[in-house]
């Protein structure tokens, strides 16, 4: 059997498959579907300083080969995550998690990062910079190299644990943002977050989603994600976590050939709770089919 292990920012993963933030809660609820210890790791629900309800409903719209969501970062707040969610997770998961954090100001990012990084169960920080900057006119941090760099610097200053910046695809040149993060000491980048999209209820002549717009994910975005991972992996030296529309073992291999060191699986978990288990189980056979002895060796293997 081929080797599936990879190293992500100095930490060994038994395989590159990582359930993506917002599709896997804080992990423990998925333990009733399968043993989540088989995962490379997983990225927890985006956590903010304060508890958040998020956006009004409807928050979900179906699309051809995908879905739009506008959940709006619903989460119990960093305190409750540390006091309640992580202890629950400990009962069913031995590994390190990727702590996904969000903020509406640079200070909030730093504060949440410091609290989460201090937790022994946290291996990596994944910093979602797609949220609006309330002090910067509401523009997303992730759409400006300067704002992205500022968040990176602030988070970098509060922890020695690996810091991975999660990039928005809703930009003209994602490599410019990735390089700005790398220059401020990011240990990795992950991409793509969802693509801004919209559906209209034709009968009612109003948007399906209460928030009007939301993030598109699912197989529909896979080629866009793959292209951005490919471009970014060539633009930076730090590892890239590739995600966007991955639903099968072949997609994992394709992402890795594009330059991903590890691969996130998002929307697929929502349609099939056992998606990641099945992808991991299918990987050895897929590797054999393509003559891959070690997944680590095929990272960036596409010309």
């Amino acid at each position: 059997m081929g080797e599936m292990n990879v190293r992500l920012c100095g930490i060994e993963l038994k395989n590159p498959v990582i359930p993506a933030s917002g599709t896997f809660g804080y992990g423990w609820e998925f333990a009733q579907w399968y043993d989540i210890n088989i995962l490379g790791t997983f990225s927890c629900k985006g956590t903010t300083r304060e508890p958040r309800f998020g956006n009004p409903t409807p928050r979900i719209a179906e699309c051809p080969s995908g879905m739009i969501n506008a959940v709006g970062l619903q989460n119990p707040g960093v305190r409750a995550v540390i006091d309640e969610e992580l202890p629950r997770l400990r009962r069913c998961y031995d590994g390190k998690i990727m702590a996904n954090i969000s903020g509406f100001s640079v200070e909030e990012y730093a504060e949440v990062a410091a609290l989460m990084a201090a937790e022994e169960q946290v291996g990596w920080l994944e910093v979602n910079i797609s949220c609006p900057n309330v002090h910067g006119g509401g523009m997303s941090f992730g759409t400006s190299p300067r704002a992205a760099a500022e968040v990176t610097r602030a988070v970098r200053a509060v922890t020695d644990k690996p810091v991975i910046l999660k990039l928005s695809p809703n930009v003209t040149d994602v490599t410019e943002i990735a390089r700005a993060c790398e220059a401020e000491g990011a240990d990795g980048v992950s991409l793509i977050n969802t693509l801004l999209g919209m559906r209209i209820d034709v009968r009612r002549r109003r948007p399906v989603i209460a928030n009007r717009m939301g993030g598109l994910s699912g197989p529909a975005v896979f080629p866009v994600a793959l292209r951005m991972v490919y471009q970014t992996a060539r633009a930076v030296k730090i590892p890239v976590v590739g995600m966007g529309g991955v639903r099968a073992a072949e997609d994992v291999i394709e992402m890795m050939l594009a330059g991903a060191t590890a691969v996130g699986v998002g929307a697929a978990n929502l349609v099939d709770p056992c998606a990641c288990r099945d992808i991991i189980a299918a990987l050895p056979e897929a590797m054999d089919r393509y003559g891959i002895r070690s997944l680590a060796e095929c990272i960036g293997g596409c010309d």
């Binding site: 409903t57 879905m67 709770p273």
Partner: peptide
């Protein structure tokens, strides 16, 4: 009834506020 993403608690697509929390 609410529009759902997953139907089993993962996506937070169908949340509502109640007297006892979300």
């Amino acid at each position: 009834e609410e529009r759902m993403g997953c139907g089993f608690g993962a996506c937070m697509g169908c949340s509502c506020r109640t007297v006892t929390g979300f």
